[in-house]
């Protein structure tokens, strides 16, 4: 399995990294908070950590800690627009149910 990015997600990440001016890629992880138990964390990665698992898709590097990978493996990161709103979305096959808000989930 792996972590993948849709083309639109990859191009947005590249644009953001460019205007930010620094960073080696994207770091995805999960936090045990939120209304359904787990929450996604999506951050800029400035450095690689020792046990990071590294994925690369459409030219974007994604760093995931093995602890988080258990919950994220197989996820496709998408960039979506809904009305005027736009942002990243996790299409995660491990999820059993998620809070209506899409920010936290349960396995």
């Amino acid at each position: 399995m792996a972590i993948t990015l849709t083309e639109s997600a990859a191009s947005r990440v590249k644009t953001f990294l460019e205007s930010r001016g620094s960073g080696v890629g994207l770091r995805l992880s999960v936090k045990t908070t939120g209304c359904s138990g787990m929450a996604y964390v999506i951050e800029y990665a400035d450095e690689i950590e020792e046990d990071d698992v590294i994925f690369e898709d459409h030219g974007v590097k994604v760093f995931v800690n093995p602890g988080s990978l258990v919950y994220l493996d197989g996820t496709e990161l998408d960039y979506a627009k809904e009305g005027l709103n736009e942002g990243f979305k996790f299409n995660n096959p491990n999820v059993k149910d998620e809070c209506g808000c899409g920010e936290s989930f349960n396995i």
Binding site: V13, F16, L26, R27, Y40, V41, I42, E43, Y44, A45, D46, A80, E82, G83, N85, E86, G87, F88, K89, F90, G100, C101, G102, E103
Partner: peptide, 10 residues
């Protein structure tokens, strides 16, 4: 409407 996430600083 699902929350669409934004990238945060580390």
């Amino acid at each position: 409407t699902m929350a669409l996430l934004q990238i945060s600083e580390p």
